Amino acid sequence: MNLTGKQKRYLRAQANEMSPLFQIGKNGLTAEMVAEFEEALENRELMKVQLLQNTDVEPKEAKDFIEEHSSINVVQTIGKVLVLFKPSTKEKYQNYSTKLPY
């Protein structure tokens, strides 16, 4: 799903008050971890992931890896924090995808 600038702006605003749910540490980023992100996003649609200081993964590398290995959109990268979005397939969890501006 390609997001427009307006949609990304809306999602960034919604994620502003959130705390990171996952942390990427010295073990790096794996396909299994990305699968966990997808599971978590199924119930939330929007979340933050933090890269710890002891990781060798750069934010740009993490963004590219996540987008290549899943259908997750990386909405924003601020420092070592990524904002991830994926529309939920379950209607009761569609808090953000139904309110996206077009």
Rank of each mutant, 00 (worst) to 15 (best):
E38D: 13
N2V: 05
K86Q: 15
Q23K: 12
L3Q: 12
Q50G: 01
Y96K: 12
S71R: 08
I72M: 05
Q53A: 10
V81Y: 02
P87H: 14
F22Q: 00
L84T: 05
T77K: 05
L84K: 11
I24D: 05
A62K: 05
V81R: 04
P20C: 00
A62S: 06
Q7G: 09
T98H: 07
S88Q: 07
K60Y: 13
Q23F: 12
E39D: 15
E39W: 04
L51W: 11
S71H: 09
E58Y: 14
T98R: 15
A62E: 02
L84Q: 07
P101G: 11
V34I: 15
M1C: 11
I78A: 12
A35V: 00
P59T: 14
S71P: 03
M18H: 06
E42V: 00
E67T: 02
L46Q: 08
A40P: 00
V81G: 01
S97K: 13
I66R: 02
L46F: 04
Q53P: 12
Q53F: 10
L46I: 13
A62I: 15
M18I: 00
E58A: 12
K80V: 05
L11H: 07
Y96C: 10
R44H: 14
N43C: 08
L51E: 06
V57W: 08
S71V: 03
L3W: 13
T4W: 07
E39L: 13
V49I: 11
S19D: 10
R9V: 05
E32S: 14
I66T: 01
P87L: 08
A40V: 04
G5L: 12
D64V: 09
T4R: 11
P59Q: 11
A15I: 09
A40F: 06
G5V: 02
E61V: 11
P87W: 10
M1W: 04
S97P: 15
K8E: 15
K6R: 14
N16W: 15
P87R: 09
H69V: 12
Q76D: 15
K99W: 00
Q50D: 06
E45T: 03
P101C: 09
K92R: 13
L29F: 07
E58G: 05
L41V: 03
R12W: 03
A31W: 02
V83M: 07
Q50T: 01
S88L: 10
Y96M: 10
M33R: 08
L29E: 09
M18P: 02
D64G: 01
L100W: 07
L51G: 02
S70D: 04
L3M: 09
S71Y: 04
M1Y: 08
K80E: 06
N54Y: 02
S88E: 08
V34T: 14
R12G: 13
V83W: 04
L29H: 08
E36M: 12
L29N: 09
K6A: 13
T55F: 04
N43G: 05
P20K: 00
Q23Y: 11
E39H: 10
K8T: 08
M33C: 02
F85G: 11
F22T: 07
E36K: 14
I72V: 09
L11R: 08
A40L: 01
E42W: 04
Q76S: 13
Y102G: 05
